[in-house]
Amino acid sequence: MAFVLAFDWKVFLTIFASVFIAELGDKTQLATMLFATDKDVSKWMVFASASCALVVASAFGVLAGTFLSGYINEKILAYIAGGSFIVIGLYTIYSA
């Protein structure tokens, strides 16, 4: 489990754009907007809390991906992830 500290803008921007687009309009963003509507709560507190939660969730994702990549081929993981997104999407459409 080696972490390389090299910075690659292409990889950074690809991951940033993918996650940013995936997060737009999802339950996390809607929950954050709901918290921000509370007049008694600092908007900076909402931003800081939501940001920290996303950082920790992303860290779990990186750790899980790193662990799984030691046991499962990267291509198989991509198929599993893609299939999971399709199943979740079909379930969402079916239950709508």
Rank of each mutant, 00 (worst) to 15 (best):
V55I: 15
F67I: 12
V56H: 01
G82I: 02
L30Q: 09
F16K: 00
V56E: 00
Q29P: 07
A59R: 00
K27M: 11
L5I: 04
Y94C: 07
G65C: 07
V19K: 00
K10D: 11
I80D: 07
S42G: 13
F35W: 03
F7Q: 11
N73V: 03
K75Q: 14
L63A: 13
L68V: 06
L90C: 06
A31C: 02
L90R: 05
I93D: 10
W9H: 02
L68R: 06
A59V: 01
I86H: 06
T37H: 03
I80Y: 08
K75T: 15
T92V: 01
I80M: 12
I88H: 08
M1S: 15
F35T: 00
Y71N: 03
S69L: 07
L24Q: 01
M1F: 10
M1K: 11
F20S: 02
G82N: 10
K27E: 11
S18N: 00
A36I: 08
A78E: 11
K10E: 08
M1I: 11
V4G: 12
Q29S: 05
W44L: 12
I86S: 05
S84R: 07
K43M: 04
D26G: 14
F16P: 00
N73S: 14
A48M: 08
S49Q: 09
I88S: 08
V56Q: 01
G61D: 02
E23M: 15
F3T: 13
A48C: 08
I80P: 09
L90D: 04
F35K: 01
A22G: 05
A48D: 06
T28R: 03
V62Y: 07
T66M: 06
F20Q: 02
S69N: 12
G70I: 05
T37S: 13
S51Y: 13
A50I: 04
K10R: 10
K43D: 05
A6T: 15
M33E: 08
Y91Q: 07
I93L: 14
A6Y: 13
S42N: 15
S51A: 12
